[in-house]
Computed example of a mutant assay.
Amino acid sequence: MAHEDVENRPAENSSAGLELAGLSRRFGGVYANRDISFRVAPGELRGVIGPNGAGKSTLFGLISGHVRAQEGVIRLDGQRIDRLPPHRRARRGVAIVFQGARLFPGMTVLENVAVGAHARTRSGALDAAVRSPRHRREEREIRADAEEALARVGLADWAGRGAEQLPLGQQRRLQVARALTARPRVLLLDEPASGLRADERDDLRGLIRELHDDGTTILLIEHDVAMVTALADRIAVLDLGRLIADGTPEEIRRDPAVIAAYLGSEAAA
């Protein structure tokens, strides 16, 4: 019998969802993330909070593949993805909305959103050059998916306009729509409410809640702790690169380590 690769074998009782096990990343001699382990169940909305410099964005980089883990394992639905480059993780179903608006100038809203669907296409440059039947079929599917994603985030009426014409709050919705066209199994939202006005934040909160209600698995980084506790099923709390708490919003509110991290050790006394 061939020797079984234990590292690549799906972990027990974690065949579905996203599993992080012992993730660590150093920059120089300083740990940005150290021994991070938790599991996100399918359909769960997991908040990730922590003070500035806690390692939240690095953690998202590790999951998406834009930062390489030096230790640890990442599994999606039981299969290891931590050795894959970002584009292959995207094909497996990991989609990320980065902090700050990232638009393609000179393109319409619909064209900007359609870019997200190309992560899962199979036709190559030759197919595109000769406009093969497969390429034409995929282009039709991409347009349909982009239109559906725009409708889902409430931007269908903006499809033909230049993306740069959108107000900031709508730009964030565009980014979410672009991620949705990749048909994500896990959607990573990195501070999506950053820089938004109060009314725009409320609209975005409503959109995230709708996506969660539809069964989308979401990891949300956000400095607005009230927003996270209102939305999340569970919350992971980082401080100085370590996971210091993981629980329901009510458990996190009462956790002495969390209180100390945000308010100082005297507050937890």
Rank of each mutant, 00 (worst) to 15 (best):
R83A: 10
R83Q: 14
L84A: 12
L84F: 06
L84V: 07
L84C: 10
P85N: 14
P85H: 15
P85Y: 12
P86R: 02
P86K: 07
P86I: 02
P86M: 03
P86W: 02
P86H: 06
H87Y: 06
H87E: 14
H87F: 09
H87S: 07
R88M: 05
R88L: 08
R89Q: 00
R89G: 01
R89K: 03
A90Q: 03
A90D: 02
R91A: 11
R92H: 11
R92I: 04
G93V: 06
V94K: 00
A95S: 09
A95M: 12
I96P: 15
I96Y: 14
F98V: 08
Q99L: 00
Q99W: 01
G100T: 04
G100F: 03
G100Q: 10
A101Y: 02
R102N: 08
R102V: 02
L103F: 01
L103H: 00
L103I: 01
F104A: 08
F104S: 12
F104K: 11
P105C: 10
P105E: 10
G106T: 02
G106H: 06
G106V: 02
M107H: 07
M107E: 07
T108Q: 03
T108S: 15
T108H: 03
T108E: 05
V109W: 00
V109M: 00
L110A: 12
L110T: 09
L110F: 07
E111H: 15
E111K: 11
N112H: 09
N112Q: 15
V113W: 03
V113A: 04
A114P: 01
V115S: 07
V115P: 09
V115L: 13
G116A: 04
G116Q: 10
G116C: 10
G116M: 05
A117R: 15
A117V: 14
H118F: 04
H118G: 02
A119S: 05
A119D: 04
R120Y: 03
R120M: 07
T121A: 13
T121D: 10
T121Y: 11
R122N: 14
R122K: 15
R122C: 04
S123K: 14
S123I: 08
S123C: 14
G124V: 01
G124F: 03
A125E: 08
L126I: 05
L126V: 08
